[in-house]
């Protein structure tokens, strides 16, 4: 990333190779929508380029890029909310059209119970489980990303796991 910061943009390619899959997964789990997640993943890499001068080489790249992905997702969320508030009719009309396209795009690979249960969790709980179980984040790293202690991250992750268990084994 230091090379990218120094305007050697080709050095972003190996970083893309390493992180775009995990980031896409992370965003897909947050949004439950593959198409949106592809757009958001692209946005993450656009922002990496745009803000490359703000990267501190002392900071782990992984932490920096996931922070970026969280922000991208948060912006997406706010934009969606604003849109919903601004013009309900319009969203309903286009939402209906897009809904048809999404129905098969969204999380198309796994129509299984686990992912359905995950999708029912509140986003913060889902995020913490996805980071911990799918993205290989330790509690220390999760704490840094979410702005809490490692111990708090551990407690949150365990609560989320219990919440998921209750949904998963509900019937």
């Amino acid at each position: 990333m230091a090379a990218v910061k120094a305007d050697d943009l080709d050095q972003l390619v190996p970083l893309f190779e390493r992180y775009h899959g995990p980031l896409f997964n992370y965003l897909t789990r947050l949004t439950n929508d593959r198409e949106t997640s592809e757009d958001l993943t692209q946005t993450v890499f656009e922002r990496i380029l745009k803000y490359r001068s703000s990267y501190q080489p002392t900071q782990p790249f992984k932490a920096w890029v996931y922070q970026m992905a969280r922000n991208v997702h948060a912006d997406h969320w706010h934009r969606k909310e604003k849109l919903r508030a601004a013009d309900v009719d319009e969203v309903e009309r286009t939402g209906g059209l897009r809904g048809a396209a999404f129905s098969q795009m969204r999380v198309s690979n796994h129509h299984d119970d686990l992912h359905e249960a995950l999708a029912l969790l509140p986003t913060p709980q889902r995020e913490i489980l996805v980071l911990n179980r799918f993205q290989g984040f330790g509690y220390e790293e999760i704490g840094k990303l979410l702005g809490c202690t490692a111990e708090a991250a551990r407690v949150k992750a365990h609560r989320a796991l219990q919440a998921l268990r209750k949904i998963y084994f509900a019937n």
Partner: peptide, 14 residues
């Protein structure tokens, strides 16, 4: 659980 795999279009766009 298997990861979601992005379409190749993601790489092309990048």
């Amino acid at each position: 659980a298997l990861p979601e795999v992005p379409r190749t279009a993601l790489r092309a766009n990048f």
